[in-house]
Design a protein around this nucleic acid. Structure first.
Lengths: 233, 233
DNA sequence: GGTGAAATTTGCGCTTGCTCAAACAATCTG
DNA sequence: CAGATTGTTTGAGCAAGCGCAAATTTCACC
């Protein structure tokens, strides 16, 4: 069985405080794989057989309601764990994970989590720190949905996206993967129509440049102002 | 130092799989205290010196925005841990906790978490399971705020409250602690006016009976139908 | 290079639910 | 018990943003 090279993960904060031998051991239980764009890595409600680490690409975490509405919970970037139902005592995935671009992931069997966690407490602690951060982000999302207007929420979503995955160009900051207006709407709790209108208005004001599945932020500072105070201030 | 009696916690799911000696050891590090109604147990942003177990009463977990908006993240019931920032690698509390009624809590120093968790893995696992459940609930809340109308959200909130803390009377099911329209609004992302109007309309239809800081649910089944499908179905 | 699918833009009308305002009811305090 | 405080109800007007519809643009694939 071809094993995964330690160098792929040795720099990650998740594995800080772990020696080379530890990393090799951890990787010995994992399998790497490629996932092509728009393919699901796991499906909501399915048995949580594995948990994953994203090596390269971007992954969309989506919840679908019984009525067919979709809500994007978050995007996962390189170096992040996802699908860690096992660490939280769950047996099924609460959401689906879809590759936003071609991705490389490594997977561990969920059943190995308890042993891994007890053998490498630093790894477990880092994982739970990640969970804590996600819980807090999710709660912040609730606060935003409860208290802010749509324009402000779209601005916040865009700021978050460019902070996490912004690629600087000489024109401005670009989101590093293709994203549709519909998907931005599913992150902010609105409709693609309102997202389109808002982005168009911002383009007129010179804050962003829009094209198909792309948003280029030209004036991050002004967008930040909208995210923090709303546009009427 | 007066120690806490083991019988207070021995029946809790959180401490399942632990022997009497273990329980005594765990309790040896804890301090019990009374908190009177409306007093804060800890404040948002403060140093997370302790984590807590609620023995009796109900606790409100509240996030306040820089603009002064309040959002109620959840209510904690007897037997639940809260303020467990330490288990998630945080050094400050992300929200405030306020006693909704007179409460009895026990507190452990946050610094003891790592030792406790490694000495009693079953306790740690139960705690992380709780965290997982909360993360999922919070994500569900995001989905509701993103996709449902106000009436449906209020119905859901009420259903959740009576499920968690419902006290059956011969008239119907009553929420076990005083709760204002304002607080219901802060749980659902709306205003107290809309909550008041909605509850009044439901009272007219015979679904609930309203009085100051009280909601008595007379027809849980019909309320459930609104929570699931909206009222127009 | 033509065709079809997917994504985006934009207009219009309307509904939900918010803001503002005022009156009213219940509870607490001294 | 008087007065103050806190919580609740209800009305009226208004605006944010949704639903619907249609046109347009962009891209992928033959």
């Amino acid at each position: 069985m071809s094993s995964i090279d330690r160098s792929l993960i040795s720099g990650m904060p998740l594995f800080a405080d772990l020696g080379d031998a530890d990393l090799d051991q951890i990787l010995a239980e994992a399998r790497a794989s490629r996932v092509e764009k728009e393919r699901a890595i796991f499906e909501q409600e399915a048995e949580a057989e594995s948990f994953f680490l994203l090596l390269d690409g971007h992954v969309r975490v989506v919840r679908t309601t019984p009525e067919g509405n979709q809500v994007i919970a978050r995007y996962i970037g390189p170096g992040e764990l996802f699908g860690i139902a096992a660490a939280l005592g769950r047996t099924t995935y609460p959401a689906s994970a879809v590759a936003a671009v071609d991705c490389v992931v490594i997977a561990w069997p969920s059943a190995h989590w308890p042993a891994l966690a007890s053998r490498y407490p630093a790894f477990a602690a880092n994982t739970y720190k990640l969970v804590g951060a996600r819980l807090q982000e999710t709660q912040e999302h609730v606060v935003e949905l409860s208290t802010e207007q749509v324009e402000q929420r779209i601005a916040r979503t865009l700021m978050r996206l460019i902070q996490q995955t912004g690629r600087k160009t000489d024109e401005g900051v670009l989101i590093d993967f293709p994203i549709t207006r519909q998907q931005i709407a599913e992150m902010t709790g609105t409709t693609l129509h309102t997202v389109s209108r808002t982005l168009s208005a911002w383009e007129t004001r010179g804050l962003v440049r829009n094209s198909r599945q792309k948003v280029l932020v030209v004036e991050p500072h002004q967008l930040f102002a909208i995210a923090e105070h709303g546009s009427g201030h």
